[in-house]
Design a protein around this nucleic acid. Structure first.
Lengths: 336, 336
DNA sequence: CTGAAAGCGCTAACAC
DNA sequence: GTGTTAGCGCTTTCAG
């Protein structure tokens, strides 16, 4: 086994208290003692046992980031920022993937199987709704990411999806498009994000004096490339296909783009496409992808700050913090 | 605070030993006792404290997966498989990102800041070389992923990069291409992967009776889209540009593809492009990307098995296990 | 089948 | 400035 405080103490001829002081960089240790202890620490290769420390102190300085899918670029990119900001506040982040599996989400957030392992959790829910979250028994602080029915009594960072979807839709309308489709609506009522984007889409279309043709509003089970590709194939098969498509994320848009080009449809000349998330893939596709760009760094920073403040004893009311977003118009709507 | 074994024991009028037995599903507990305890557990919302359990047992049933960058799709996709296979063997995986920072890699692997937190580590190194790894003091079992100077005394799962690079290169040659470039060589000698792929590339070109024009072998600092885009721009600026390019990963290839199309170069008619990793992006680009496809699921499975076996007490000599790969020829070399 | 008690490695209150 | 010690919550001998 690896050496313990006691091993070091015995060998250095001091008490474990003194070793602990040295290891933790406390002030009042005689220089000579400190030197001797440090030498023994090096000799033995002593490392503090994180687990014992956590048990004793009741905290681990570790945060969990719980996301549905790490191989969805949006989450991978967001994760980088969360790790950076957490490090700045002295926390280590471990990442957990749920696949949107309710059991797994519940396990991580509600039951607290790992409750005492992490000081706090940043959680991007898929399956768990406001009702579930409300009767959480575990007291580990949580910050929610993305859209959720409000008033769950938890801190929450999100963008205004209705406005953002409207921004994307109006961009298409301003380009002179009149027959505008949307890909990514979801019937499942826990999928708030999709519902809010549909709402923003509908509003924008209606306000422009256009009509929302129900056949142009395509539902998908997931937000993956394959779903976007399939939905676009359906749209192209229509007697009267759209001249523009708003996809609820960039993966859907990239799938849709691929299908369009494969069918010989020109983008944006025949159909303009806009996505959502501003993942790096979309900046390197041909044509490059117009998109709504949420400020991922800001989202990560806000989430970490909120959580860190709670851990520092902030007991004010839970808040909903809006994050910024911008329209990035690229070749898939503007052309070269 | 959350309730402890003692709280449950007192309330149920039994000893903590009995509660522990119930919680852990041990056999010999009288049905009546079990029922009573279970009721109190539910009432109080008792959850075992993972940290205390880890300290006591000396193991956590958690594995760390340490990768350079989660927003590199290859690692994100691999991570999914690692999580799945680890779960099948009863382990939880937490993911850690190093950015290839030597300090951070050392911290995680060598020093064992988190040593007692994880039972084992699956590590995809960037900065740390064989020499570093050899004098590791921490005894937590490690499985290495990807290329590394051998004989570091650690289990190791990798594909044969020389052969794989040769396969990609020969594919281009068989298509009748004669002026073949490579993007992704790296001067840094710790970057074994790049060196081995260059070796395979050179061998294949030479064996075909062609010449490796030094100007066609482009080094890049990283393996990102931007690096591929920049390298391709340089190649296109040559008096005598290549008619095929082998990129050392798919991100480089996607960047190169974007630049080529932007310059009005037709792919594959003017320049054929092949990548490496078979990430999902490449299946949806236009043209879709030919690539070498390492069996990521197999890599993940082997790594987890190797590690789990070590944790089960396997003390045989460390092994190097080769993983499979295949050529996926798509539109970027074959056309529609 | 169940209870009592030791102890995992550490920190922190309390002594001197 | 340093030593002694209790105890974080749990598992696990050892008794009975």
């Amino acid at each position: 086994m690896s050496p313990t405080l006691r091993d070091v103490a015995e060998r250095a001829g001091v008490s474990i208290r003194t070793v602990s002081n040295v290891v933790n960089g406390f002030a009042h240790v005689a220089p000579a003692t400190r030197a001797r202890v440090e030498q023994v620490v090096a000799e033995l290769g002593y490392r503090p046992n994180t687990v014992a420390r956590s048990l004793r102190q009741g905290r681990s300085r570790m945060l969990a980031l719980v996301v549905p899918e790490l191989d969805v670029p949006y989450f991978a990119e967001l994760t980088r920022f969360v790790i950076e900001h957490a490090a700045a506040r002295g926390y280590t982040v471990v990442v957990d993937q749920t696949d949107g599996d309710p059991t797994r989400e519940r396990e991580l957030i509600m039951n607290g199987t790992t409750a005492n392992l992490f000081d706090g959790v940043i959680f991007s829910p898929i399956a768990l709704g406001g009702a579930d979250l409300r009767d959480r028994t575990v007291t580990t602080p949580v910050v929610l990411l993305g859209e959720r029915a409000s008033a769950v009594g938890l801190d929450h960072v999100m963008i205004d999806n209705v406005t953002a979807a409207g921004l994307a839709t109006r961009h298409l309308i301003e380009l002179g498009r009149t027959r505008i489709a949307a890909i990514g609506d979801q019937n499942d009522e826990t999928r708030q994000t999709a519902r809010l984007r549909t709402l923003g889409f509908r509003q924008a279309v209606t306000e422009a004096g256009l009509r929302v043709d129900p056949v142009l509003l395509r539902s998908t089970s997931f937000f993956h490339r394959a779903d976007g590709a399939a939905a676009m194939a359906e749209l192209l098969a229509l007697a009267d296909p759209p001249d523009a498509v708003f996809c609820y994320n960039d993966l859907l848009a990239l799938g849709a783009l691929r299908t369009a080009l494969q069918h010989g449809v020109r983008v944006p000349e025949d159909i303009a496409i806009i996505g959502f998330d501003d993942i790096e893939d979309g900046r390197y596709s041909t044509p490059s992808l117009s998109t709504i760009s949420p400020d991922k760094e800001q989202i990560a920073r806000l989430a970490v700050e909120l959580l860190a403040n709670r851990l520092d004893g902030d007991t004010t009311e839970p808040v909903e913090v809006p994050a910024d977003f911008t329209l990035q118009a690229r070749e898939s709507t503007l052309g070269r």
